[in-house]
């Protein structure tokens, strides 16, 4: 009994200390979790990457496009390299992309894209879109080339590193392609010597590498077929035979409909319903294409360059 009283007294005396001890050791970590969860436990953007990828892959194209408009942080999810590399969603729906100057009935325009840079020359070209990514290159017949990749849906716009200047050589042609195996986008630049008509240099930019590389064994013909994955010329000369388009070998070749010249002042590109307008030809330098088939995409141009060795 006496022992019990002592113990009780001890407890009463110690009570404030016990409370303090409890509040420092037990409550503190609890408070921390409470304060971090009181605002909002987890938000969509805080989820682990694999869950976000799992969820995003269940959504139709339209929802993904909407994600880009919800907020900046939601939009940035789709361009994080860790997520972007797993998302390669292209709209099934095909539209017609053409210069706004060529629109004859404005009511057919669905979206209007304003080109995010001012093109100061007449001779810029828009290359055939790949997965909804647009490539703008130019000027033609200049020593200096500027190349831009642009995803009008995610509004990503990337100025590529400037290709090297080769004395006496000017830009003659450009090409754009995709290598599914490595999820890589490649831009080809063909330069020709101003005075030596048979002297060509082929250079390829890889988005994954983020640099230009000269194609070994450039040939004396402008008409080539190039293996974009290995970055080598596999066929020389203008051939009518169309190569089988297989998953393993993605090729690029000079074709008349590879590029559309951008007219200046360019007030934008228009996206119209798929069967918009009649195909018509208007010769402009070597380019005569005036419209492209376009399927929007949420493919991000972001690559994790730091992690590349």
């Amino acid at each position: 009994m006496a022992m019990g009283n002592y113990f009780l007294e001890f407890l009463i005396l110690m009570a404030p200390f016990i409370v303090i001890w409890r509040s420092t050791t037990v409550n503190k970590p609890k408070n921390l979790t409470v304060s971090s969860s009181s605002q909002r436990d987890v938000n969509f953007t805080d989820l682990p990457f694999d869950i976000i990828i799992n969820i995003i892959n269940r959504l139709p194209f339209k929802s993904l496009f909407q994600i880009c408009l919800v907020s900046r942080s939601w939009r940035s999810l789709l361009s994080m390299p860790e997520i972007a590399i797993h998302i390669n969603v292209v709209s099934q729906k095909n539209y017609t992309l053409l210069s706004y100057n060529d629109v004859t009935s404005p009511s057919d325009v669905i979206w209007k894209f304003k080109i995010p840079i001012e093109l100061l020359s007449l001779e810029y070209v828009l290359l055939k879109p790949v997965n909804g990514i647009l490539c703008i290159c130019g000027p033609l017949y200049s020593h200096v080339s500027y190349v831009y990749l642009w995803n009008p849906l995610t509004k990503e716009f990337k100025a590529l590193p400037r290709p090297k200047i080769h004395m006496g050589y000017v830009a003659f042609d450009f090409g754009f392609g995709f290598v599914p195996k490595t999820n890589d986008y490649k831009v080809l630049r063909i330069v020709s010597h101003e005075r030596k008509p048979d002297s060509w240099i082929h250079e390829i930019y890889s988005l994954n590498r983020n640099s230009w590389r000269r194609v070994q064994k450039s040939c004396s013909d402008i008409f080539v077929t190039i293996n974009l994955e290995k970055e080598v010329i596999i066929e020389v000369g203008l051939s009518n035979r169309r190569r089988e388009h297989s998953e393993e070998i993605t090729t690029w070749r000079n074709e008349m409909d590879n590029a559309m010249s951008l007219t200046y002042p360019e007030d934008g590109l228009a996206l119209c319903h798929s069967k918009y307008g009649q195909q018509y030809w208007r010769g402009y330098k070597s380019y005569s294409t005036r419209k492209f088939a376009f399927a929007g995409s949420l493919v991000s141009l972001n690559r994790n360059y730091d992690s590349l060795g």
Partner: peptide, 17 residues
């Protein structure tokens, strides 16, 4: 998220634009 307008998604996920 599916079949919801941008506004609705913002409301559901309590996001301010």
């Amino acid at each position: 998220i599916k079949d919801k307008s941008v506004e609705a998604v913002r409301k559901i996920f309590r996001i301010e634009s």
